[in-house]
Design a protein around this nucleic acid. Structure first.
Lengths: 335, 335
DNA sequence: CTGAAAGCGCTTACAG
DNA sequence: CTGAAAGCGCTTACAG
C-alpha cells in the first residue's frame, strides 16, 4: 500500500491536519514541525496523492490537449511548446487525438470533462462542422483555447496563424519571381485554415491583376495520396501551371516528387512553395521554400492564454485572439 | 457547479447509492430504475467524476507514458499505437517527456506516481545510467513496461526491437552489394540500442571476415548536427569508407546531404543504410535504404503487455520480453 | 430491489 | 501553533 498522510501522522504521533499543513508549507506551522514532517515523509517515501487532493480542492492540476493527430510534426511540436508552460505551472497534460474524426472529438471532450481537467486546448478535426461540443465545454465552465484550427464565428479565445497573409505572401513571392500560372493545392475544404490560405492566394492574384483559373485550384483530403491530382494538373505541358502553392509541406513534398517523376524540373518548369517550414524543407530536393508556421511559440501562447482564462485574469482583446504572422523562407524550390 | 450523483438522487427522490448502481449497470437494480436514472442523467448532462470514482475504487483508469521526446516520429507513432489499445480499455494516458535529461525522467516518474497511474510505459533517456527510479516504481507496486530503450540487466517486462540482428542485416546487405569499407555512425553511447546495433555491425564484419577499422566507427549525441564527423570520416578519398550504416534515418539523411555537398555520389561512391524506415526514406534523394522499426506495432505490444501485468494475468516468458525482428527495405541509397 | 453508512486520501474552516 | 471534524463525489459491504 502507498504511504498516506495518516501513516506519517501516526508515525510522528501528531494529527493528519498538521502533517498536511506542514507538507504544504502553511504559515501557522512551526519550522520545527515542518522539518520533522519533511524528513519523515522522505524517509517513508511519501508521494502526495494528487487525485485525492484534487477532489478536495476541486483543482485537478491537469489540462487536456485534443489534436487531430500527434504524429503530425506541427502538432507534436505544438504539444512540446504547450507542455513547457504547463509543466512550469505544476500542471500535467492529458493528450487525446481525434484522428480527424468528429465523433472521436466529441467523445474525447467528454472524457476530458470526466477527468475534470481545468482547461482544454483544442484543434478541431477536418470533419468538424458542428460545434455543440464547444458549447458543452462552456456549459461545464471548462475554459478552453482553440488552437490553429479554430471554429468559425464564435467568440472564443484563439491562437492561430495568420493564414490569409501567409497565403498572400507565398503567392506574392511566386509572382515576383515572374511566375504567371500559379496553382493551389489546398487543404481539407471544411477547415478555416484551408479557406484562408486559399483566400490569401486569391487576394494576391487579384492584387497583381492575375486571372483566376479554376482548374488550378484543388482541395485535398488528409490521409490520402494526391499523385493523380498532381498528374492531372500538370499533364498538359502547354497549359499547365508554372508554380504551385500548397496547403502544407507534406503536400509540397508529394508534389515535388511526383513532378520530378513526370520529368518536370523544379523550380525551372514549376516553382513550389509549401506551408509549415518543417524539417522536410531541407531534406527534399530541391530544398523547399515554405511559409513559417511556428508550432512551439503558438503552443506556448495557447498554454499561457489558457492559464489566464483559468485564473480569470483580465485578457486584453489583442491577446484573446492571437494571430501569428508568417514569412516566406526562400529555398531552391522557387529560386 | 457540475452535476453529481446526489443531484440526480434528489431530483428523482431516490438514494445516491441506487443512482450509482443504476449508472454502473449493477445486476440488482430494476430495469425500470435504470431507465429512469439514465434519462435523468442525460437530461441533467451528468458526467461521472472519474477522479472521485478513482479515489474510491483505487483505480485511476490512467496509464503514464514517458518518452525522450514526443516530436520524434518513432515515439509519436509509438504513442499512437499505445493509445489505440489504451483507449479501447477505457483508460486515458498521461504523456511526459524527459527531453533526454535524466533528472526530468526521475521527476516525471514521481509525478506519474502522484497521479496514481496504474502503469507506466517508459523509454529511457540517452543520459540514463542509474536505474533507481525503476526501483521506485517497483516499490510503489506500479507496473511498467520498458519500451524500445530498455534498461540493461534488469528482469523487467520489455518490448524492444531486435537491434542486433537489425544492425547485422544492414551491414550484411552492404557486404553482399560488394562494399568493402563499411563505416558506422552510431547513436548515443550509453544506450543499449546503440550498443546492440553496433554489435550487429561488428558481427556482420566478423562473419564475412572483414577487418574492423576503428576510425570508421563514431558514436553521436542527440540534438547535435554531425557535419564535422561526416566530413572527417570522408575527407580522404583514398581511405574513406564506401558504405555507411547509421543509427537512425535522421543521421542517414544528414549524411546523405553532407556527402552530396562534398561532391560524393550516393550510392556510387558511398552506399548509405539508415535505421527506422521512417517517412524520410522516400523524401530524401536518393531514397534511403533502411532497417524497419515498427513503432505502432511495438506501441500496441507494449500497451497489451502492460495491461496483462496490471491485471496480473499469466505472461508466458516469450511475451514478457518481446523482440520485434527487423528487415532491410532496399531503396536507391544502396543499389 | 433499495437505502444508510462508511471510507478512499486529502484540505480547511472552526475551535482551542 | 495544533487537532477534531466535515466534506470533495464517488462505491460498496451491510442490512432490510
Amino acid at each position: 500500500m502507498a504511504i498516506t498522510i495518516k501513516d506519517i501522522a501516526t508515525a510522528l504521533k501528531i494529527s493528519p491536519s498538521t502533517v498536511s499543513r506542514a507538507l504544504n508549507d502553511h504559515p501557522n506551522i512551526s519550522e520545527e514541525t515542518k522539518k520533522v514532517v519533511a524528513e519523515k515523509a522522505k524517509e517513508m517515501k511519501y508521494q502526495t496523492n494528487f487525485i485525492a487532493a484534487g477532489l478536495r480542492t476541486k483543482k485537478s492540476n491537469s489540462i487536456g490537449i485534443l489534436v487531430p493527430h500527434i504524429t503530425s510534426s506541427f502538432f507534436a511540436s505544438a504539444i512540446d511548446g504547450i507542455q513547457k508552460i504547463v509543466t512550469d505551472q505544476g500542471y500535467f497534460t492529458i493528450i487525446c487525438q481525434s484522428n480527424e474524426i468528429y465523433h472521436n472529438e466529441v467523445d474525447q471532450i467528454k472524457s476530458l470533462l470526466s477527468c475534470k481537467v481545468e482547461g482544454v486546448i483544442l484543434s478541431i478535426s477536418s470533419e468538424t462542422n458542428d460545434y455543440e461540443h464547444l458549447e458543452t465545454l462552456e456549459a461545464y465552465d471548462t475554459p478552453f483555447v482553440l488552437f490553429d484550427r479554430v471554429a468559425p464565428g464564435f467568440d472564443m479565445p484563439t491562437v492561430e496563424a495568420n493564414d490569409f497573409t501567409g497565403g498572400f505572401q507565398a503567392v506574392e513571392h511566386l509572382i515576383k519571381r515572374g511566375r504567371k500560372r500559379i496553382a493551389h493545392l489546398g487543404g481539407p475544404g471544411l477547415l478555416g485554415i484551408s479557406k484562408r490560405r486559399y483566400e490569401g492566394y486569391l487576394e494576391a492574384l487579384k492584387t497583381y491583376a492575375y486571372e483566376v483559373n479554376e482548374d488550378f485550384v484543388v482541395f485535398t483530403n488528409p490521409d490520402e495520396t494526391h499523385e493523380d491530382i498532381i498528374e492531372d494538373m500538370f499533364k498538359d505541358p502547354k497549359n499547365s501551371p508554372d508554380a504551385l502553392f500548397t496547403f502544407s509541406d507534406e503536400l509540397a513534398v508529394e508534389a515535388i516528387l511526383k513532378l520530378k517523376k513526370m520529368g518536370l524540373n523544379v523550380p525551372r518548369d514549376v516553382s513550389v512553395v509549401g506551408f509549415g517550414n518543417s524539417n522536410l524543407c531541407e531534406i527534399v530536393e530541391p530544398h523547399l521554400t515554405s511559409v513559417t508556421h511556428e508550432p512551439i511559440e503558438m503552443g506556448e501562447a495557447a498554454a499561457e492564454l489558457l492559464f489566464k482564462v483559468i485564473q480569470k485574469r483580465h485578457i486584453p482583446p489583442h491577446l484573446r485572439n492571437r494571430k501569428f504572422d508568417s514569412r516566406v523562407i526562400i529555398r531552391d524550390s522557387s529560386r
